[in-house]
């Protein structure tokens, strides 16, 4: 029988096998560090599909040059917080 779970603000962790530690090379770790955003540095450019004013559109961060932008991420639609 499938196990029932209580709805929360976070999806249950996806069960997947972790790669053995020696597979994660130093290069990967370094690359991850360089990707991290910093205050005072440019925000990484992106294009993403969006729902806006009743339409499905493709939106890029660069379209908002000249305006103040609040970019907010959240865990999921229909979650509670």
């Amino acid at each position: 029988m499938p196990e029932e779970f209580k709805p929360g603000c976070q999806r249950p962790p996806i069960k997947k096998a972790k790669p053995p530690a020696d597979v994660i090379s130093e290069a990967t770790v370094k690359e991850d560090k360089e990707l991290l955003v910093k205050v005072g540095k440019p925000a990484p450019e992106f294009t993403a599909p969006a729902y806006y004013q009743g339409k499905f559109v493709n939106t890029s961060l660069s379209e908002y040059k000249g305006k103040w932008v609040l970019l907010c991420f959240y865990p999921g639609d229909f979650t509670f917080v």
Binding site: A43, K65, K67, W68, V69, L71, C72, F73
Partner: peptide, 11 residues
């Protein structure tokens, strides 16, 4: 995550 980005695209 919540990011404030200025008109020049700077975080």
């Amino acid at each position: 995550g919540r990011f404030i980005i200025d008109p020049d695209g700077i975080i």
